[in-house]
Design a protein around this nucleic acid. Structure first.
Lengths: 276, 276
DNA sequence: TCAATACTGAAACGTATGGTTCAGAATGCG
DNA sequence: CGCATTCTGAACCATACGTTTCAGTATTGA
């Protein structure tokens, strides 16, 4: 029988490990396999536990001694670097049908497909617009996507002044609309089970000559009617759930790109804040 | 000055090495860097020379001792595996250098790597715990991750009763702690620039016998000390930004799985809500 | 061919490292 | 709440490991 990979051994054993031993396991997985080449004392230090526990951990993995464990790591590493595809940090093959793996695979698939559906020029234009500081920038999300709007708000506030997030409640929204000026950028998140309230909001904004950008799903929110820029994402997962991870990823990409574009001011603001 | 790679040092030194030392050098280059992790005796054996020669060889490379040489190898390996390499299996991208594509590629890579680092048993245990309705479930996020906590809150509220999100401000947090009972689940999000406030919170919770679950980054928040379950994610993007998309994806996976597990009640609750 | 020099590995040494024990702390159960 | 059990790390021990020494061997130049 081929000896099992150390990584797999850890996963298998994980459930039976004690608290301190788990810390050791995590530390090792955290920078695998390098930490295993360190002396026990350093390992235990990095894991925040005692050398004794590390030794127990190693023995639970089925190794007779620490050196033997290290040798296994070395052999494994050798095996890996010799194999045709340099699969330096590949997923250890385990049950490919497990929920988590399937879910992540699907998410990855969505990300892939989404990239293709987003025109680069649109993406660039959106980022440029958001980095543009002469006009204010407003963020609006729906029931679930509001969280994404908040995330973006928290980041963009570091980058530039004039960031606002519109509150979710339709009642207060009317008031907030008053602050939006002609030329202001408004970034909408709207996905399936499209929010009908938003529809009115968008209409009002169009009348005010704002610049609406829409991030939506593959079925495209009716808001697109009013949007100057539309960025569609693939969100369905196995036809059961809709997953907003792709929206989130896109939000992060926009944040990152806008930060680049507005770097001259962003760096100053960030610097100021870090000092406190 | 940045320390030179060991490999380069060897090449530089090669010309000045003696015959037996060259054998050592070749052996090391021959299966680099694994042989360097072996004890001196084994190294010398593999190189067909004596331990003394290996030591001399190492010292010629400019290292003060064999352990120091090994540490350099480890650091180097670490550096290498952390860099954004291995993008062989990818979308036939149009402009592969464009920001958006690169960003998504990196995110995909992070998702891939993250799956490997999360033990299924831990993931399952966390979901089961969150689906468990006899105890309350509290969510806590940091500066940016608070948005993710909110997202999760919005979903889990549909699934089961007893969901609460702790407010970010340390002042109000004290009051909120009072509501947490022994056995309650507390889900923390904590990534780099770890929130020191959270640390105290976690300590207090541990004293109250709550059940802390931690979602963190590859460097593992110090909170892990108190956590019963730790789910680490890969978040670094090209060493410049940290991206929380993976955290978000994990949050969604947990939501989805917990929904499955608690389906009997979840379906009823969702049905009730949809009717309105 | 011989002498001077450099190289090499066997053996001896001291230390840092892995391993073990045990008392105290934490945990879980009745 | 208190007992039994398990877990944990401090202190200790044995030894394997890196290191040094030194005598023997090869190499080079005269």
């Amino acid at each position: 029988m081929v000896p099992k990979s150390v990584e797999i051994r850890i996963h298998d054993a994980m459930i039976a490990l004690t608290a301190a031993e788990k810390r050791a396991a995590r530390a090792l997985l955290g920078n695998y396999p390098m930490l295993g080449f360190a002396p026990v004392a350093e390992f235990s230090n990095a894991a925040g536990t005692s050398p004794a526990t590390v030794l127990r951990f190693v023995s639970r993995l089925g190794f007779a001694s620490y050196p033997q464990f290290q040798r296994a790591l070395r052999d494994e590493l050798e095996e890996r670097t010799k194999s045709p595809l340099q699969r330096s940090h590949e997923v250890p093959a385990r049950d490919p049908d497990h929920f988590l793996d399937r879910f992540f695979d699907q998410t990855i698939e969505n990300l892939r497909n989404s990239v293709g559906g987003i025109p680069l020029s649109e993406f660039e234009a959106a980022c440029a617009r958001i980095a543009e500081q002469r006009t204010a920038c407003h963020l609006v999300g729906g029931r679930f996507t509001d969280a994404i709007a908040r995330y973006m708000e928290a980041h963009l506030r570091l980058v530039r002044p004039g960031i606002r997030r519109l509150d979710g409640r339709p009642a207060t929204r009317q008031d907030q609309l008053l602050d939006i000026k002609a030329g202001d950028t408004v970034l909408f998140f709207d996905v399936r089970r499209y929010d009908t309230d938003l529809y009115e909001t968008a209409e009002a904004l169009a009348a005010r000559r704002a610049f609406p950008i829409l991030i939506t799903d593959e079925w495209i929110s009716p808001l697109s009617r009013y949007a100057k820029i539309v960025l569609p994402c693939r969100i369905s997962v196995e036809r059961v759930w809709d997953a907003n991870t792709v929206l989130f990823a896109l939000a992060e990409a926009i944040i990152a790109r806008a930060t680049e574009l507005a770097w001259s001011t962003a760096s100053r603001r960030i610097g100021d804040i870090e000092q406190n």
